[in-house]
Design a binder for these strands. Structure first.
Length: 426
RNA sequence: GGAGGGAUACCCAAGUCUGGCUGAAGGGAUCGGUCUUGAAAACCGACAGGGGAGUCAAAUCCCGCAGGGGUUCGAAUCCCCUUCCCUCCUCCA
């Protein structure tokens, strides 16, 4: 959500900035009229309430002194009715205004490249050499199924499409990746580990920006009106919802492992095989609360923390600065990290690192105080995958596969795998 | 799931039965001061925050006792709904 006062005085400029990201602005044209209407109604009702307050004091005084107050009471009855009517109208206006604001996307940062589609994303850097295979590299689902470490077929029977069973060394590898990443981020990068709830309420989904616009992307538990989390970003960012943080404690950094659930509405037919697009997947998510003046420097650090995982795993990757059309609804700036997948012969997204500035903090009401006496200010929130585990699993299987169908385990993971160096057929 | 009890400011806590100088007592913590070589103690002082409207800035006004409705001239106080916490019973990994 954007700042209402800022919008009020910079509406023309904001419209320009949002057009830059390809947004249709017609839905927001009512802003100025609604804002004005709200303030008019507020002025009227507040004036009447002020009158009611003072007259009520007067009535109390008269009653104490055993004098007659009936005429005042009759007069106030009418004022009360007017207030009620005005308040209803005010509430309706505020609801419209809020709905408008909740559907308005974030403003891109000036360092975001202009673009019309994902083709206009700008590659910032590459790391690692792409391996030359002297045999034909197989897709990870074939390698893993042959090794009996993933079972998509039975998952289809037990649940449905886009689910999998990890099995044996596969399950252990997945677990090793989770532990390795959490240990790296907590021990080397200063994050506090967290395990969040996997279901959240509507207010939390609204706080981070999944709602109201993208409800069809989430799985919903109808009886409770809870949502299965699409990312740990939701529970972990909302951890500090409606709080005023101590400025001295910033930046606050959390690394959270969780399963993630996405309906993948609108993705039918895309990436139907393998681990790339599942309804349920594991991820270690990095979430940070920072001071506004630090947020862009912190975004660079955060992205570096995610890259470090790939460097240590020896996986080639590149970093993209997402263009204005591919930013998503909530981000002011976003880097995607893409890992090399031999069977696709391309880089595929494995992490997304974003600076939301005050966009989520305003929705979720997360503030901080610089000094004891200071006014609360909005924090800036950042997050990034560090990394998506399932896609990392796929990248390891594909990049480390051997001609005999076995897979070499990257050295940094071996301590988490009981010293095992290679996954082989039984 | 059943039966009770709670939620008041940073923390503790009175007020709720019996609606009106409660625009919320008192204590603790915190901050400032006196005293002291320094500190502690004691004493004095400050301490409802936050949001909104308004303004160049103020003044001023509105909201605010878990959240949301209602009754009333007037609600922390009466009524209804929701959430969360506690105790006991039941069930359960």
């Amino acid at each position: 959500m954007l700042d209402m006062k800022y919008l009020r005085s910079n509406f023309v400029e904001v419209k320009e900035r949002l057009k830059f990201r390809g947004e249709d602005m017609s839905a927001f044209e009512d802003f100025e009229a609604l804002d004005q209407r709200r303030r008019d109604l507020l002025g009227q009702t507040e004036e009447l309430k002020s009158k009611r307050n003072s007259v009520s004091q007067e009535v109390a005084r008269l009653k104490r002194e055993k004098q007659d107050a009936d005429s005042l009471i009759v007069e106030m009855r009418e004022v009360g009715e007017k207030i009620k009517t005005l308040d209803i109208e005010l509430r309706e206006t505020e609801e419209k205004l809020e709905s408008l604001l909740l559907n308005m996307p974030n403003i891109p940062h000036e360092s975001v490249p202009a673009g019309e589609s994902e083709d206009d994303n700008v590659e910032v850097r590459r790391h690692g050499d792409i391996r030359e295979f002297d045999f034909e590299a197989k897709p990870h689902w074939d390698v893993a199924t042959d090794l009996d470490i993933l079972d998509f077929e039975r998952a289809g029977k037990v649940t449905g499409s886009r689910f999998t069973f990890y099995k044996g060394a596969g399950s252990k590898l997945e677990r090793a990746l989770i532990s390795f990443m959490l240990d790296l981020h907590t021990e080397e990068h200063g994050y506090t580990e967290m395990m969040p709830p996997y279901m959240v309420n509507r207010a939390s989904m609204t706080g981070t920006g999944q709602l109201p616009k993208f409800e069809e992307d989430a799985f919903r538990v109808e009886a409770e009106d809870y949502f299965l989390i699409p990312t740990a970003e939701v529970p972990v960012t909302n951890y500090h919802r409606d709080e005023i943080l101590n400025g001295d404690d910033l930046p606050i950094s959390y690394a959270a492992y969780s399963a993630n659930f996405r309906s993948e509405a609108g993705s039918a037919g895309r990436d139907t095989r393998g681990l790339i697009r599942q309804h349920q997947f594991n991820k270690v998510e990095l979430v940070r609360f920072v001071k506004p003046e630090d947020s862009y420097a912190e975004l660079e650090k955060l992205t570096g923390h995610a890259e470090k995982v790939l460097q240590l795993l020896g996986l080639p990757y590149r970093v993209l600065n997402m263009c204005s059309a591919d930013l998503g609804f909530t981000a002011a700036k976003k880097y995607d990290i893409e890992v090399w997948l031999p069977s696709y012969n391309t880089y595929r997204e494995i992490s997304s690192c974003s600076n939301f500035e005050g966009f989520q903090a305003r929705r979720a009401n997360i503030r901080f105080r610089r000094e004891k006496t200071g006014k609360p200010e909005q924090v800036h929130t950042l997050n990034g995958s560090g990394l998506a585990i399932g896609r990392t699993f796929a990248a390891i299987i594909e990049n480390y596969q051997q001609e005999d169908g076995s897979v070499i385990i990257p050295e940094v993971l071996r301590p988490y795998m009981g010293g095992k160096e290679r996954i082989t057929k039984k």
